[in-house]
Design a binder for these strands. Structure first.
Length: 577
RNA sequence: GGUCCUGUGGUCUAGUCUGGAUAUGAUACUAGCCUUCUAAGCUGGGGAUCAAGGGUUCGAAUCCCUUCAGGAUCGCCA
């Protein structure tokens, strides 16, 4: 459509050879400004007239010879606005939804993408920050798959180190006779309690930190008793995670990595790099430690092996990157990790580039912001005052349930149905609120606000869907098709809604290209707003008879778009709520 | 100190990459709309020096420079 317009303008505007119409023509922000807009500023010099006059002249001239695809050309100030013939647009959009072609979205550049998330530290239960991580990861995967990318889903479990030793010590000191059951805790919460209590105890007894260090040494020496305890604690953590992962729809991984199995690997990579004189790789002459010297202020020096030859965190990451590369040879490696690790990943990618494993062009740090308390202070996981992932979801669901019980329509539902709805609404509210903001932005978490289901929320979108389904039930027609529909029969608010539906593919492609799940949630809000505006002013069943079919088709199409969009966000729909 | 990120009505947020018309919505506040397809909805109102200053441009929230504020990070820790 745009191409038709460009060709038309090129042929009919004088002195326009030098103009880049492709770039100039844009979509107006306001519907009243038509579908395409052409600014006349640049013609001003060539024609020696002010842009406002040019726009008026062009309107007079072009309106006589407008292509049939367009219904109107109008000058508004220095802009020339074109409106397309809505019958053609509505027909093509509604037909593509009917045939499900609208779901068939092809990325401009489909790739094999390996994603790594949520990569927890296994000494505690998962908290609200992980929730953000998981929801972003889930959605990103859905979006990438929906647009034809191949996705490999991995996670690295940070299952060794001082933190897990502290949890183990806490267990030994305070809870060796307890079990999660005896304390009425989820197993991973039980471990977290051991960890937190140990941390608190170190404030009183400073020798405890040394003892934890000693335990780590024993672990590294493969001491049987220590390893047994370690496995016992990890079993607890993983069995707790299993439930959390299920609740947050994490599904199966293609591959899971474990820090305990790779933390001491990677030495060879570094030694080989030094031997083959990879740029910047060298030994420190005094200590014998291995490092990369970037010789600039931004990166400085990065050590890769200690003086005694043992490995460091970065070395392990190099090894893991090589593992992935050798096995999968993906086009892109995505790390979904909090933005505080940005420097680490910049350095990592730079080193990987020098090692021939693909630098910044093949690796991407999908960084996301912090989740703060509502007063802007940081959650402290050491003190243990973090909002737990399990608790959070449970709270959201419980609140949804109270909400349903407060409504005439739903207060007498069977318990099973009530719980099912509450669970879908609660999850939707939580997921939507986290996905509707820019991933990189920090967010304050306010439980009261999260529990308010008005405005730009998941329940608003789900509710809109349920309303549509309710109308369709009432209409009780099974075969709503695009046959026999007069596509010119739609009024302004209907056409606007249909055009909005036609934007679905753009929204998904935007989300894919920019790695931006919020593009989809933002889009769904706009669709629902368009629908609710239309719904409020137009009676469908029992309204205008000759509009019934076209309207049923329209709202059914809307429901399909909403359902598909929510599906990408991992949110389910309800027929009634 | 170096590097990076962030800054848009009281609060939250879209738009920033790729400059375009009166800056998108939400929330809170406020005035209305349910004997009518679900009011978790809709309509109206007030509320913004787009952190500040300068530059580029016919045109800047958007690009460039400077400054300010907040945050992160800069270890032979992970």
């Amino acid at each position: 459509m745009k191409q038709i317009l460009i060709k038309f303008l090129q042929e009919n505007i004088e002195n326009s050879e030098s103009l880049d119409f492709e770039k100039l023509i844009e979509k107006p922000k306001q519907a009243a400004h038509g579908d395409f807009s052409f600014p006349c500023f640049l013609l001003s010099k060539a024609l020696g007239k002010p842009p406002v006059v040019i726009a008026q002249d062009l309107q007079a001239k072009l309106s006589q010879i407008l292509p049939t695809q367009f219904s109107k050309v109008q000058a508004m100030g220095p802009f020339l606005n074109f409106t397309v013939n809505s019958g053609q647009i509505t027909e093509s959009i509604l037909k593509s939804i009917e045939s499900n072609k609208f779901k068939d979205i092809k990325s401009e550049n489909p790739q094999k993408v390996l994603i790594e998330y949520p990569s927890p530290n296994t000494n505690k239960n998962l908290h609200i920050g992980h929730v953000r991580n998981i929801l972003l990861g889930n959605t990103l995967i859905n979006i990438l798959k929906a647009t034809g990318n191949q996705v490999i889903k991995t996670s690295i479990n940070n299952d060794r180190g001082i933190a897990i030793c502290k949890a183990m010590m806490g267990y030994q000191l305070f809870h060796s006779n307890d079990t999660p059951e005896s304390m009425n805790l989820k197993p991973d919460e039980f471990v977290a309690k051991c960890y937190v209590e140990f941390e608190a105890e170190t404030k009183k007894d400073e020798t405890l930190n040394e003892k934890a260090q000693a335990m780590l040494v024993k672990w590294e020496e493969n001491d049987k008793q220590t390893r047994d305890l370690w496995e016992k604690i990890l079993d607890l953590v993983y069995s707790g995670y299993k439930e959390t992962f299920e609740n947050y729809k994490l599904g199966e991984f293609d591959e899971q990595y474990y820090e305990s199995q790779i933390y001491d690997k990677g030495k060879e990579i570094v030694e080989d790099a030094i031997n083959s004189k990879v740029e910047g790789f060298k030994y420190d002459e005094e200590s014998g430690a291995a490092l990369v010297d970037f010789e600039n202020e931004t990166f400085g020096k990065k050590y890769l092996l200690r003086g005694d030859g043992t490995t460091l965190y970065m070395t392990q990451d190099l090894y893991l990157a090589k593992l992935k590369h050798d096995k999968y040879n993906a086009d892109k490696y995505v790390f979904i990790v909090g933005k505080e690790q940005q420097y680490h990943f910049e350095v990592l990618f730079e080193i990987l580039g020098r090692l021939g494993l693909g630098g910044a062009e093949k690796n991407y740090h999908f960084a996301y912001g912090y989740v703060f308390n509502k007063d802007g202070t940081k959650f402290s996981s050491r003190a243990g005052n973090v909002v737990g992932a399990d608790w959070l979801l449970k709270e959201m669901i419980e609140h949804s349930k109270q909400n349903l019980l407060g409504k005439d329509l739903t207060k007498d539902l069977p318990v099973e149905e009530l719980n099912k709805r509450a669970s879908i609404i609660g999850y939707g509210a939580l997921a939507f609120s986290m996905l509707n903001v820019n991933a990189l932005s920090d967010m304050k978490f306010d439980m009261d606000k999260a529990l308010a289901f008005e405005g730009e929320t998941g329940p608003y979108v789900q509710y809109t869907y349920a309303r549509i389904k309710s109308i369709l039930r009432k209409a009780n027609q099974n075969n709503i098709t695009t046959k026999d529909i007069d596509f010119n029969n739609y009024n302004d608010s209907e056409v606007q809604l249909i055009k909005q539906l036609g934007e679905f593919q753009n929204a998904v492609l935007q989300a894919e290209q920019k790695f931006k799940p919020s593009a989809i949630s933002n889009y769904l809000i706009r669709v629902c707003q368009s629908f609710n505006e239309f719904y409020q002013n137009n009676k469908i069943v029992g309204g205008d008879e000759d509009k019934l079919q076209s309207r049923l088709l329209l709202i059914e199409s809307t429901s399909k778009v909403i359902q598909t969009g929510l599906g990408l966000l991992g949110i389910e729909t309800l027929e009634e709520m």
